[in-house]
């Protein structure tokens, strides 16, 4: 499936009056969600930046139906909506739009439960790699070494790989995506909407205040995450795992940009030594080997 950005739907689903920070990566993702599923989606949004930036009751800056729900509950609430629609004969998609804290940490039980039941929902975890809404506290999805207010000398633990964990539930569809590659994310949302059962998209979404960078650089940084290999675009579709472009190119380590180019733009990594960077590069390479091994283990059928 290929298409041009100028051929995407023109209707705007993120409208003036929203309260997002300048350069918000998540909001770019929400725009693409609107383009892909704006007329079909009913959103469940747990406590998160996404809950706050909608704007203030009784108004809203997001032109999609939204049910705001308790922090840990979104996957279960969406299950209820999906089942209600099935029984009532209403067409549409129950979509969760949740952050990394609401997914990888407090909401992981309900996400795992919905995945195991194969509930008919599309779950998008926008990953800005910390609790940004409460003011930059570490989550299990914060990368190793990143500064947050609760890891003042850098996080000591590695990032939880939620997308791989979801794929290992054996659900019909799991993908990673990045706000820097809207066509890829758009296509993945469309693909997810064709599939019955549990769909999970892990969306990498930089955060200017949380990652400490110039708000003009959101897309550049998201792109660098992919070009340095720090964020890998892949797709697990009905038992087959494959890399997606442009990540396919970066299987070859030599083609990746130096990780430093990604890290140096971000204040959260300002304290890193060259040794720290080297260690992160090795961890990234190990992740590549894991993904490639899984691609081999779950090959495309001819």
């Amino acid at each position: 499936m290929s298409f041009r950005i100028d051929q995407l739907p023109k209707k705007k689903y993120v409208v003036p009056g929203n309260a997002a920070c300048a350069g918000c990566g998540m909001m770019i993702g929400l725009k693409i969600l609107g383009m892909a599923l704006g007329e079909e989606a009913v959103l469940s949004i747990p406590a998160s930046c996404a809950a706050v930036v909608q704007g203030l009751t009784p108004k809203s800056g997001v032109a999609m139906p939204i049910l705001n729900v308790p922090f840990a509950s979104a996957a279960a609430v969406a299950t209820g909506i999906a089942e209600a629609y099935r029984m009532l004969g209403v067409k549409g998609h129950a979509v969760v739009w949740a952050g990394d804290g609401g997914t990888a940490d407090i909401g992981f039980g309900t996400v795992s439960g919905a995945a195991e039941r194969n509930s008919n929902i599309i779950y998008v975890m926008y990953d800005n790699e910390a609790y940004m809404n409460t003011g930059i506290q570490r989550s299990s999805s914060t990368p190793r070494a990143a500064w947050t207010t609760t890891t003042p000398t850098g996080k000591h633990e590695r990032k939880k790989d939620v997308a791989l964990l979801m794929a290992m539930h054996g659900v019909p569809y799991v993908a990673t995506a990045s706000i820097a590659y809207p066509q890829d994310f758009y296509r993945k949302l469309k693909r997810a909407s064709e599939i019955q059962g549990f769909k999970f998209i892990h969306l990498h979404a930089p955060c200017p205040p949380g990652w400490r960078y110039d708000p003009a650089k959101t897309v550049e940084i998201a792109k660098l995450a992919v070009e340095t290999g720090a964020w890998i675009l892949w797709e697990y579709d009905n038992g087959q795992l494959k890399l997606n472009p442009p990540s396919t190119v970066y299987v070859d380590r030599a083609k990746r940009k130096p990780l430093k180019e990604y890290l140096k733009l971000q204040g959260r990594f300002a304290h890193l030594t060259d040794n720290d960077v080297k260690m992160l590069e090795e961890e990234i390479e190990a992740k590549w080997q894991t993904v490639l091994a899984l691609a081999k283990a779950f090959p495309q059928r001819l």
Binding site: V42, L56, A63, P65, N68, V90, G92
Partner: peptide
């Protein structure tokens, strides 16, 4: 609560 009918429930009060 229906697709295509934008209505927000439970966002912050103005």
């Amino acid at each position: 609560l229906r697709p295509g009918e934008p209505v927000t429930f439970g966002n912050l009060p103005s």
